[in-house]
Simulated scan of single mutants.
Amino acid sequence: MGKLESYRDLEVWKISMQLAREVYQITEGMPKHEIYGLTSQIRRASVSVPANIAEGYGRNHRKEYVQFLGVANGSLKELETLLLLAHDLNYLNDITKLMSLCESAGRLLTRLRQSLQRVMDSH
């Protein structure tokens, strides 16, 4: 694996950006009366994942980076919950792909956090 030039080189960031794009597309079909409610919450949670990965990457200390990755993971779990609720309310039909992207992003976030933690623990 080559040297990372930017957070944009991180696979977890790329997947979470894809997730956010797809969330925006799928929520276009949600009821208009939810635009300021559930639709807005789903979209904000989806954007929070890559945004926190990027913000953490830009921090000066690994400890801060790990904290931001934790926030990203929390937003990811929030997003999963909101997607399940929207599906249960029959606002979204098939969330299989979105849930799969959430799982992939979650696994990658966990690995990245563990790897950063190991580096911090070894110093």
Rank of each mutant, 00 (worst) to 15 (best):
K63M: 06
L98T: 00
A51N: 12
T96M: 03
M120C: 07
G74I: 05
N52Q: 14
T27I: 04
E5I: 05
L116E: 06
N52I: 07
T27A: 03
S115P: 00
G106Y: 03
E11W: 03
T39Q: 10
R107P: 04
S16T: 13
S75Y: 07
E5L: 13
V47T: 08
H123D: 10
P31Q: 13
G106L: 05
G70V: 05
M17I: 10
M120H: 03
G2V: 11
Q18Y: 01
R8K: 15
L85G: 02
R111P: 00
M17L: 11
A51W: 11
I95Y: 04
L116W: 01
D88M: 12
G106E: 08
I35E: 08
S75N: 04
K3H: 15
V49M: 07
V23Y: 00
R8L: 11
G70D: 06
Q117V: 02
E28R: 14
T81Q: 09
R59Q: 13
A54K: 08
S48P: 05
N93S: 14
R44G: 00
R111N: 12
S115G: 02
E5K: 15
E80R: 14
P31I: 14
Y7T: 09
T96L: 02
I15A: 05
G58Q: 12
K77G: 03
N90S: 14
G74T: 05
D121C: 01
N93G: 15
I26D: 01
L85W: 12
D94G: 07
N60C: 12
L108K: 12
K14H: 10
S46G: 06
K32F: 07
S75C: 13
V12S: 09
E11L: 15
S115T: 09
N73V: 02
T96W: 00
E28G: 01
G74C: 10
N90C: 13
R111K: 04
G74F: 03
L4A: 13
I26Q: 02
Y65M: 11
